[in-house]
Computed example of a mutant assay.
Amino acid sequence: MPLHIAVDPLHGPQIAALLQAHLDEMHRISPPESVHALDLARLRAPDITFWSAWEGDALLGCAALRELDSTHGEVKSMRTEPAARRRGVAAALLTQVMDEASRRGYRRLSLETGTQPKFAPARALYARFGFETCGPFAGYVEDPCSTFMTRALSGAQDGTRQ
């Protein structure tokens, strides 16, 4: 069965459970001041578009795009169900986020992820998609538990790197 990715209204119990598992894991791995994962209420804000990935009735993952300003977006809430990992779900979701950011005319897409070994697969995925480490952005501060990454999007001028 093919993977289906769609904008999600964040009302179903499956997505609530996936996001709660994400928050719980982030709090197990990182100190409280280093957890930047968003809860359901914050993900429903108008500056965020949220997608879920499904295979039939099975929820496989999710991702969100937060608008920082008219030229800069942030990847948020990337999560793949453990049983669906290493099947291309995260890559498909990241492609969806990047395509939407480009469609909106963003020149830059950034993200924050962890420095701990548990986050190594995420950092590798982002690097494979052209993200490079950078300093804090959008109100984040230096944190030994955070890796900040960014990339220019197609159509961006050479001088737009931040």
Rank of each mutant, 00 (worst) to 15 (best):
L60D: 00
T95P: 01
A17Y: 04
S77I: 05
A124R: 15
L10R: 09
P117D: 11
M26E: 11
T147R: 11
M1I: 09
Q14C: 02
M1A: 14
H11L: 14
L10I: 10
A16Q: 13
P82W: 09
A91Q: 14
D8W: 00
A124W: 03
G73P: 03
S146C: 12
E74A: 13
G105N: 06
C145D: 13
D57T: 12
R161K: 09
E112V: 13
D158K: 14
H11S: 15
T147S: 15
M1R: 14
L43Q: 13
P82Y: 11
A83S: 14
D8R: 05
S146V: 07
P117L: 05
M1Q: 09
H4D: 15
L23Y: 06
I15S: 06
P136A: 05
A58L: 11
P82Q: 12
H11G: 15
H72G: 01
T71K: 12
E55I: 05
G105L: 08
D158A: 15
R108Y: 01
L109W: 02
C134H: 03
A41E: 15
C134R: 03
L18S: 04
W54A: 02
A37P: 07
A83L: 06
G88E: 05
M26V: 01
L68F: 03
L125W: 02
S110F: 01
G159D: 14
R85H: 08
D24E: 13
D99V: 07
M78Q: 00
P144G: 10
L19S: 10
R103L: 12
M1T: 14
I15A: 11
G139Y: 08
A21Y: 08
F148K: 01
R28P: 02
T71S: 15
L40H: 02
E100W: 11
Q14P: 00
L111F: 06
A84K: 07
L68I: 15
A92Y: 06
A101S: 13
Q14N: 02
A53L: 04
A6R: 09
G139S: 12
Q162G: 11
R28W: 08
F119K: 02
S30V: 05
T71E: 09
V35N: 05
A6I: 07
